[in-house]
Structure formats: structure tokens, C-alpha cells
């Protein structure tokens, strides 16, 4: 995070990757699949939201652990802002998924196990924000927030990656199937999909670094 705040090169890279995602995602050939039809292209926009969310939350847990071992409030700042961006990704993922599902599954909410689990996961993370907001002392807030964040991540993984696979799900790659079978992600999609994941994730980091810098400026003013 400190490195990303200091250096600049990855910002133009984000721009290039996202422009490539839009152009490639709309223009490159996509597999002709029944029911999905042209909406398969949403893959480049809906799925990276979830990848982005998971990556943000993972980094956040890393910084929470680092805070607990060093008691340096900077790491708490990183962890809390990354959670915020992760929740933003998650909400966008749910809404974009509902729009997509309305066309392919017939209704925006079909109580699909993955849909339900992702809402539960997001509610757990929203509770983290409320918990942090309810505490006054900075170190107190950071310590309890860090412990909660680690537990929230430990619940998130089974909620999103284990439980939906144990029942039938409308999501591809669930109900016993591996996530990236050759039928649901072919090589035409892959050459846009992976840069798209990287681009959207970097965009998340970009916003997170801005929030972190803004928050640390605010802290400077508070202490003066």
C-alpha cells in the first residue's frame, strides 16, 4: 500500500487496462451461448467486482494482522479504507448481478445460495463499519476493528466459496463444479477477462489510496 501510494506508474496502467476492457469486452468475439446470448459480456464487468472485493478484503486482513503486531495506526487506516472499497465493489457486484439475473434467470433475486451468501457477507462487513464508528478511542477502534475484520474474513471464505458449492446454484461453477470449467470461460473471454480483473482491482486500489491520503491529511489537521 505504501508503495502504491508513493509510485505513479500503475495509474496509467489502470486507465489502459480499463479502456481495453471496454473495447475488447464489447468488440471481441464472445461464445454464442443460449439464454446468455450477448449478455455474456457482462462477465468482464460483474465478476471483476467480486474479484476486486476479495482482493481488497484480503489486503485488509493482512493490514489488520500487521496492525495487531505493530500497533501502528497507519496499518489500521489501510485496513479500514480497503474494507470500504471492498464493500463498494460488493454492492456494485450484487446490483450488477441482479440486473444480469433479471435477463438470464428471469428475476433479479432467485434466492440463489451465492446471492444470499454474498448479502450475508456484506452485512457482516457493514457491521464492521458500524462497530468502528461506535468506538471513540483510535487504538481501541483499531484493535477491535482488526479482530472483527479477521473473523469477518474467516466467515466470508466459506460463505462465498464453500457453502454455495454444497447445494445447487444457478451460478456457474457451483453445485459441485469447478469454477472455471472450459464451458463457462473460453479462451476468447479469458484474454479480456483477466486484464479486466486486474484493471478493476487497480481502480479499487486507486480509490483506496486516495481515501487513505485524504484521511491522513485530515488526521494531520486534527492533531494541529
Amino acid at each position: 500500500m505504501k508503495y502504491l501510494i508513493k509510485v505513479y506508474w500503475w495509474k496509467p496502467l489502470t486507465v489502459i487496462l480499463l479502456i481495453y476492457t471496454v473495447i475488447g469486452g464489447f468488440l471481441m468475439s464472445a461464445p454464442r451461448l443460449p439464454i446468455l446470448n450477448e449478455t455474456i459480456r457482462i462477465l468482464h464487468f460483474h465478476v471483476p467486482m467480486w474479484f476486486g472485493m476479495i482482493i481488497m478484503f484480503t489486503f485488509s486482513v493482512f493490514y489488520s494482522l500487521k496492525y495487531l503486531s505493530t500497533k501502528n495506526l497507519v496499518y489500521d487506516l489501510y485496513a479500514s479504507q480497503l474494507v470500504n472499497i471492498g464493500i463498494m465493489f460488493g454492492v456494485l457486484g450484487i446490483i450488477s448481478g441482479m440486473i444480469w439475473a433479471n435477463f438470464t434467470w428471469g428475476e433479479p433475486w432467485s434466492n440463489d445460495p451465492k446471492q444470499n451468501a454474498s448479502v450475508v457477507a456484506l452485512l457482516i462487513y457493514l457491521a464492521l463499519i458500524i462497530l468502528r464508528g461506535s468506538l471513540q478511542d483510535d487504538h481501541h477502534k483499531a484493535r477491535i476493528g482488526a479482530v472483527y475484520n479477521i473473523f469477518a474474513f474467516a466467515v466470508l471464505i466459506p460463505l462465498l466459496f464453500v457453502l454455495p458449492r454444497m447445494t445447487d446454484s444457478l451460478h456457474p461453477g457451483n453445485g459441485g463444479n469447478p469454477a472455471f470449467g472450459q464451458y463457462d470461460l473460453d479462451s476468447d473471454l479469458r484474454i479480456v477477462f483477466y486484464p479486466a480483473v486486474l484493471g478493476w482491482t487497480l481502480l479499487g486500489f486507486w480509490i483506496a489510496t486516495q481515501q487513505i491520503r485524504l484521511a491522513s491529511l485530515q488526521k494531520h489537521l486534527d492533531y494541529e
Binding site: 480499463l18 479502456i19 471496454v22 473495447i23 464489447f26 468488440l27
Partner: peptide, 12 residues
């Protein structure tokens, strides 16, 4: 489709 791409790129 190019119109769509132009609009999305503009917003981006």
C-alpha cells in the same frame, strides 16, 4: 456498437 463504446469510454 461503436456508439455504445464511445459513450462508455467517454464516461470512463
Amino acid at each position: 456498437i461503436y456508439v455504445v463504446i464511445m459513450v462508455v469510454l467517454l464516461l470512463l
